[in-house]
């Protein structure tokens, strides 16, 4: 079965097309919706074609690490619940979920999207911890880019809750104060099937990739994170092409954000 599918995909690619008629460098329709859960301090829904991901930001007060006593922290978690795909199973996060979370985390962290010093409440005592949880609702491929976009949108939407005099959070009362975002990293994953470079793969195409490269990009085209996946090696020429494509595509993805 999978051999027939792969053959079909390769045959179509030879005609410079994909199984759903898209061009190699064409994303499906991208939509971003803000504020989809009022239990969270910030939240968003991203749809890329039939792929749907939601993300929520919770904010907690914690104690800083002794070596960074004036810095808050972030955490990114992805749950690949069996809800969103027949291929996902219940239980603690597996390798795929952990890689996905870490790649999203890396782009945000290395872009210095959040100024950790601005998350300090009282040096050495209390800091804000920003906790981002990402849940695919329907997995039709490209969870990497959808998750990165969704995490950024949820951060854009996030406002600090109110603190009382004992540094206890009153979650019922949100302030108008937004979580400060210094940079807005997005990622684009470029995959290689045969000799072809493609973006925004659907769940069937994803099964047959030779290699993929997830590229984190800032507003000005600066790169902030990379992750190679797949079982085949890439030569430098491929990587250059992939990076160019990612810079171009993240510029387009940015238009879906407010």
């Amino acid at each position: 079965m999978s051999n027939i599918l792969k053959e079909h995909i390769l045959t179509v690619l030879k005609q410079n097309l994909r199984t759903d008629g898209r061009k190699f460098d064409e994303f499906r329709k991208v939509e971003v919706e803000y504020g989809i859960s009022n239990s969270a301090e910030g939240s968003a829904r991203v749809k890329i074609g039939d792929t749907e991901v939601i993300a929520g930001v919770k904010v907690e007060v914690g104690t800083p690490f002794p070596d960074n006593s004036d810095e808050g922290s972030i955490m990114v978690n992805v749950e690949l619940r069996p809800f969103s795909s027949p291929d996902f199973v219940s239980g603690p996060p597996g390798t795929d979920a952990i890689e996905l979370a870490r790649v999203v985390d890396r782009a945000i962290r290395e872009a210095n999207a959040l100024d950790f010093k601005k998350l300090c409440i009282k040096e050495g005592e209390s800091v804000w911890m920003v906790l981002i949880d990402i849940y695919p609702i329907n997995n039709c491929g490209n969870l990497f880019d959808a998750s990165a976009l969704c995490a950024l949108a949820a951060l854009q939407d996030a406002k600090f809750p109110k603190l009382d005099e004992n540094n206890k959070i009153d979650y019922k009362q949100k302030t108008d104060k937004k979580i400060p975002l210094a940079n807005q990293p997005l990622s684009c994953t470029v995959s290689k099937i045969g000799e072809n470079l493609l973006v925004d793969l659907d769940e069937v195409e994803e099964k047959f990739i030779d290699a993929r490269l997830t590229i984190g990009v800032l507003e000005d085209g600066t790169l902030c994170a990379l992750q190679k996946g797949g079982d085949t090696a890439l030569d430098v020429k491929d990587i250059e092409k992939m990076v160019d494509l990612a810079i171009k595509k993240t510029k387009e993805l940015r238009k879906a954000l407010k």
Partner: peptide, 18 residues
Amino acid sequence: CEYNMMAFSGSGDRVRPG
């Protein structure tokens, strides 16, 4: 059946997944 509250869905602190 499997019932799950998403980590950000509670009225207070983050609900730990799992």
